[in-house]
Nucleic acid binder design. Sequence first.
DNA 1: TAATCATGCAACTAATATTGTTGCATGATT
DNA 2: AATCATGCAACAATATTAGTTGCATGATTA
Lengths: 152, 152
Amino acid sequence: MRHDTRLSRMLHVLVHMDRHEGAATSETIAAMLGTNAVVVRRTMAGLRDQGYVRSEKGHGGGWILARPLRDITLLDIHNALGAPQLFSIGLAGDNPNCVIEQAVNASLAGAMHEAEAILLAKFGKVTLAGLAEESSKRWAKPAHCSLEMEHS
Amino acid sequence: MRHDTRLSRMLHVLVHMDRHEGAATSETIAAMLGTNAVVVRRTMAGLRDQGYVRSEKGHGGGWILARPLRDITLLDIHNALGAPQLFSIGLAGDNPNCVIEQAVNASLAGAMHEAEAILLAKFGKVTLAGLAEESSKRWAKPAHCSLEMEHS
DNA sequence: TAATCATGCAACTAATATTGTTGCATGATT
DNA sequence: AATCATGCAACAATATTAGTTGCATGATTA
């Protein structure tokens, strides 16, 4: 089953944007992520609608952080991306009247809800400022990337 | 993102098999699950290889439980299915040298590992016998399904 | 005002993973 | 010998996501 890496990638982008002077274009971000500008716009649109970034057209335009990193948590971004399913396993629904299916699904759902609550609680406690700080600590060894195209 | 319902469905099947006299054919199981006998064989093959079920050919053949339900946990079946990814979100790996990506991924991975450990621990504590017992409690209201084709 | 740059959006194509299908071989029962 | 059932491999269908293209709109700059 394929992974949804949008959360990881968007967090990466947002922290970079904070270090970046001026707006970052979709094209630049796409180059960093090894993807396409339209895909970037599609994904960033969700963050814009929730007020985490702004987009500006024209010369010098692009994407700009609309809030300080310390006011954004991993949970915020997860939700802004549409709060996609966290789990790749799901419940069968072929026989909703079957008491066995009900018992199986109730047990699985209970465990999954508990794990999900813990995961989201953790996400809610980590700010992007915290991530930026943590990455600064890793800065000692100089290998890194940036929005200035050191990627490719 | 599409869900992998094999765990849920196989648990359902295994509990039914315990109530079932004799072997259950792939065809019968497939009818119950609204799928195909070959798909059932593919999935059950993993459980057979781990010793949870046996398969027998010929007249009266099919699938038989190889252990009592109380000796099988949800975790056992999850593992027998290949321990597929539990989470549908994943980590970006485009810029492994980037300290920001590293910090982002370390944070996400930490939260996910914690949640995963909790989920698997829960799975390890639930036996199929427990599920069978729980479904018996639901038996008061008679709607149910069985391997005798009440499904379709 | 004209040229350029950048997003917004919709429609289309491509790539990928899973599921479903078919055909044939093998083994067991009757 | 006939029937039933799994085993396996190759192929087709399906669904989802990612990527692409084309055009419109708005902002900046000269």
